[in-house]
Design a protein around this nucleic acid. Structure first.
Lengths: 161, 161
DNA sequence: GAGCTATACTTGAGTTCGCAAGCAACTATA
DNA sequence: TATAGTTGCTTGCGAACTCAAGTATAGCTC
């Protein structure tokens, strides 16, 4: 599949555009493979995993839905539906807030906790293999640093025309 | 409020994992904003633009559908439906192949050509602003080089020119 | 040239996600 | 305490993809 593809050449000498295209392609290729593995091994999407990991690291393994949305850069409605699925699977439970009737927490269940720990091992190994292993240790730090430059524009900020 | 987010953002002390999360978040934030602008300014999705640019740089502004799929990392069926849309808009036309009845070319129409040139200007400016401007020139080159390491990140780098 | 296998493309069904709109509950103002 | 604005969450709808399966054509190989 990959042999013919390499014939395409760099047409532009504009570094920014080249970097951006590579960024997009790398993302497409990596997420395709990683999510295929995650789905096959654990029945989770990358967004599922992402949310579960956020909960795993949260105080009491619980978070408000808005905060989940903000931390994983999905919209509120995306989170609603995603959590629907995780609740149906029994990995996450709803908990209402005593001081504010609007908010409901998502809490990791025992099974959810088990699932995260289990999935985390293989998923991180996959990330190491497909992503990390392409770079030298120094380069990994460098890449992490460069990527930190990009502002995480939150959904709430980008609004009206 | 945003300080909380940053603490949940970085969850692992493993550089690879941190880099990967930043990669995902940067992608989500950048593509969301870039595609919103592209949609608002030109009525195109990023995939639409991606395909149009590929055609723009191709010989005779024409490509086989399979080759388009490979170069932009979408599946064949994705390309079928994406081109359906572009054909309906009159930006792209179908052309059959004389030597192989299975293949059909996608060709940029005159209007398509106009559209690419027009969209390219503003879209590349947006990329420069949101992506390129976060980095020094040297860093841009560095990032481009690091991103080239990933499998298929280099499938097609037809860009500006 | 008959029978395989591979390739190019399309179609049907299903999933994930965003936007817009809506509701309910909180907060600030007066 | 009325009222206006904000925030948290959900729902309807549609867009963009993918996978699996199907059709048609090409190119072997015997």
């Amino acid at each position: 599949m990959s042999s013919q593809i390499l014939t395409t050449q760099v047409i532009s000498d504009d570094v920014t555009q080249v970097a951006w295209i590579r960024f997009l392609r790398a993302h497409a290729a990596l997420t395709r493979e990683l999510s295929a593995r995650l789905e096959a091994d654990h029945g989770l999407t990358m967004s599922d995993f992402d949310v579960l990991i956020q909960l795993y690291h949260a105080d009491g393994h619980a978070m408000r839905r808005v905060d989940i949305a903000r931390s994983v850069l999905l919209t509120a409605s995306g989170i609603t539906r995603l959590l629907d699925g995780l609740e149906r699977c029994g990995l996450v439970a709803k908990k209402s807030c005593e001081t504010d009737a609007r908010v409901s927490y998502a809490v990791l269940t025992d099974e959810g906790l088990r699932k995260v720990k289990e999935a985390r091992r293989s998923h991180h190994a996959d990330i190491d293999e497909l992503f990390g292993a392409q770079l030298e240790p120094k380069e990994r730090e460098l890449l992490a640093e460069l990527l930190a430059r990009f502002p995480l524009a939150h959904t709430s900020e980008a609004c009206s025309a």
